[in-house]
């Protein structure tokens, strides 16, 4: 197993008290596999991703518990120096906003070759060559001249591809893509995701794909994890999850999105209510105020994530007795 996350909890100390951004999250990821993490804003998707690289700033954040095993090593036990060797080298991150994630006063070439120089001890000349090769690989036209351009001279889609090139520089085993296509147009989104899918097939790179778009997940993920208020509510292989969603939240999400292939006479069935306030979570199951099947027990006790069939886990009282 390439990545094994066990009962990870991340808390933030905020003015309103302790915010449990991620609670008791466990998952595994093998080589060449894609895991989709789905949820609404504030459900802890991004925090989970950042914690894999140990990028949670402390304070206010703290990894309150759990283990992250990457290639057999517990990342939470490593020194900062050892961690630096992993970041960008064996594990790379593609951030959500290429506008802010790229350094505005360094040329694109300098940023893309930085991981090569830091990790592979490449000399400048070969690094430049490799950098051109990388930019060509993500299909940036005229790569050898655009190398000298600054991020603001690129369009949104191109900047995102520069981010991908940077992530690929050291042939990482794991790429974490945090909403890589939010804000991109659909045509660019399809192009970029097809490219990343190709990587998982040819290079056996594992991919953690964080998104709120259930369509993207259906296309590109092998496994899906649905998060709500910092916890996993359902986890299953993609086919299984879309065929038979079990958690009321998953069912609600699938029923509420407009689809291109849907009968239009049907009205959308939204999930009632509002997403919860993370500093002030409801008692019991955090979803109960919005759940159509809520029972008194849901308000009192928190359901545990239970396996209901091979690889399919659900945290709901309806499925555990």
């Amino acid at each position: 197993m390439l990545l094994h996350v066990n009962q990870l909890s991340i808390h933030f100390h905020a003015r309103q008290g302790i915010v449990k951004a991620v609670e008791d999250v466990s998952f595994d990821l093998a080589e060449g596999e894609t895991l989709g993490i789905v949820g609404e804003s504030g459900c802890g998707k991004t925090v989970t991703a950042l914690s894999l690289l140990r990028l949670i700033s402390n304070p206010p954040g703290i990894i309150a518990g759990g283990e992250i095993f990457f290639q057999g090593r517990n990342l939470l036990k490593l020194s900062e120096k050892e961690m630096c060797d992993i970041r960008g080298n064996h594990m790379a991150m593609i951030f959500q906003e290429p506008m802010t994630a790229l350094h505005p006063v360094l040329t694109v070439g300098r940023q893309v070759r930085e991981p090569l120089i830091v990790h592979k001890k490449a000399v400048r000349k070969t690094a430049v060559q490799d950098c051109i090769r990388l930019l060509k690989r993500v299909r940036i036209p005229d790569a050898d001249t655009r190398l000298h351009d600054y991020p603001h001279q690129f369009s949104g889609g191109m900047r995102q591809r520069v981010m991908v090139a940077m992530g690929l520089a050291c042939n990482p085993k794991l790429i974490i893509a945090d909403e890589p296509t939010t804000g991109l147009d659909v045509t660019l989104q399809a192009e970029l995701l097809e490219f990343m899918k190709g990587l998982t097939q040819t290079e056996k790179t594992a991919l953690v794909l964080i998104t709120h778009d259930l369509g993207i997940v259906a296309c590109y993920a092998d496994q899906v994890m649905i998060m709500y208020a910092g916890r996993i509510v359902e986890k299953a292989p993609t086919l299984e999850l879309y065929r038979a969603p079990q958690h009321p939240y998953t069912q609600g999400l699938l029923a509420s999105i407009p689809r291109l292939d849907q009968d239009i006479q049907q009205k959308l069935r939204p999930i009632e209510g509002q997403p919860p306030d993370m500093a002030n979570l409801p008692s019991g199951c955090a979803f109960h105020p919005r759940c159509p099947h809520a029972k008194p027990r849901c308000m009192r006790e928190l359901p545990k994530l239970m396996q209901i069939s091979t690889g399919h886990d659900v945290a709901c009282w309806m499925h555990s007795r």
């Binding site: 659909v186 045509t187 369509g215 259906a218 296309c219 086919l239 879309y242 689809r259 291109l260 292939d261």
Partner: peptide, 15 residues
Amino acid sequence: KALLSAVPIPDPLIE
């Protein structure tokens, strides 16, 4: 046509 085909459909069997 390109726009429509680029929109993912949330159903892996169709996809």
